[in-house]
Amino acid sequence: MVQKQVFFQSVSFVNNLVLRAENLACARGARKVFAQLDFQLKAGGAMAVYGANGSGKTSLLRLIAGFLTPRDGALSLSGDGHEATQCHYLGHTDGLKANLTVAETLSFTARILGHDGAALDLSMLGLTAHQQQMVGDLSAGQKRRLMLARLIIAPRQIWLLDEPLTALDEQGRQLIDQLAQDHLATGGMIVAASHERLGFAGHRLQLNRQNHDMAAV
């Protein structure tokens, strides 16, 4: 029996946080991506967003992150002190610099995310042996693992994950699952877009042009 490792400790999240979309519509340029989207997600909940290519999975995540503005309807957060809520966004692009080493990337990430400087145990990422390697020389899956470091370094209540399983091996997928479940257990919230089944997600949202399906798994 392997001791279950808990990655997140002493994190104070807004415990009655609710993310709500009402009649949400999104457009890229002149093209309408989706419309009349309603859903509600509470702290501790995870929602997997499915849909065909171009159905607006990424756009929905970018709306929640605040990069995009809704064409119509509203997206709101409520809860005590929800103004201070921050999110992690893991997109298609990795946000990594090929000319930095893994160790430099990790320390830079920790500094800009406002980590207190305490020693972090990042051994579960499986990159310990590659500390001095340039990020540009890592494999796609290893870069993906390096991206995940962000989730561990700084606690943010909302995680927006775009195709989180891409390029990861079986062990990497288990790592995501483990991280996500610990995050949800501490009151976090996850919205993930994927084409594959996500083990941790308790709700699924099927994006169609209209008539979206929101269901508990």
Binding site: G66, Q86, G91, T93, D94, L96, I112, R150
Partner: peptide
């Protein structure tokens, strides 16, 4: 470079 590799998005989420 920041725009292309997604760093800008990460910067956009900073306080």
């Amino acid at each position: 470079a920041d725009y292309e590799d997604g760093t800008l998005e990460q910067l956009g989420l900073l306080p």
